[in-house]
């Protein structure tokens, strides 16, 4: 495989019924690259939670994934309203999801906690009114 594989996806903010397509695509690529089930699964969970958050809370955004021999790095950048209090947002159970979105099964306030749990590192930076950037890294164990 080439040294670094780079993937880019634009995530549509309108269509939250189809959300998860970028995560599925990345999962398939990681599988094809031959990574273990556990790593692929953790990456898919992290990316899905980030992707769906951009759709639900930020009207869409962009995903950049790079896979090097050392790590999988996933950057999610949006131009949404941002997160005023990141510490609060990271808490299990905290959610500002609307009733409409909750009816679909979102809004448990478990997305960011899932990302923290399954990524080796998670960095959230946000500027209210300007947008949010989420960086997640999963280390690849040397074989």
């Amino acid at each position: 495989m080439p040294d670094v594989v780079r993937l880019h996806y634009d995530v549509d903010g309108e269509n939250f019924m189809a959300a998860g397509e970028a995560s599925s695509a990345v999962k398939n690529v990681l599988r094809r690259l031959g990574f273990g089930e556990d790593l692929v699964r953790r990456a898919a969970i992290c990316l899905y939670e980030g992707e769906i958050n951009m759709v639900i809370h930020a009207n869409g955004g962009a995903i950049d994934v790079s896979v090097s021999p050392q790590a999988i790095e996933m950057v999610l950048q949006d131009q949404g309203d941002g997160i005023p209090d990141i510490e609060q947002a990271m808490r299990e159970g905290f959610s500002t999801a609307s009733d409409r979105v909750r009816d679909l099964g979102f809004g448990a306030g478990m997305g960011l906690p899932n990302m923290r749990r399954y990524a080796d590192s998670l960095e959230v930076t946000s500027e209210p009114g300007k947008g949010t950037r989420v960086l997640m890294t999963l280390r690849i164990a040397p074989v």
Binding site: I45, Y48, E49, L104, G105, F106, G107, A108, G109, M110, G111, P113, N114, R117, Y118
Partner: peptide, 9 residues
């Protein structure tokens, strides 16, 4: 479960 991010996690 019915809450998607619980199931996801």
């Amino acid at each position: 479960g019915d809450l998607l991010s619980w199931v996801m996690g």
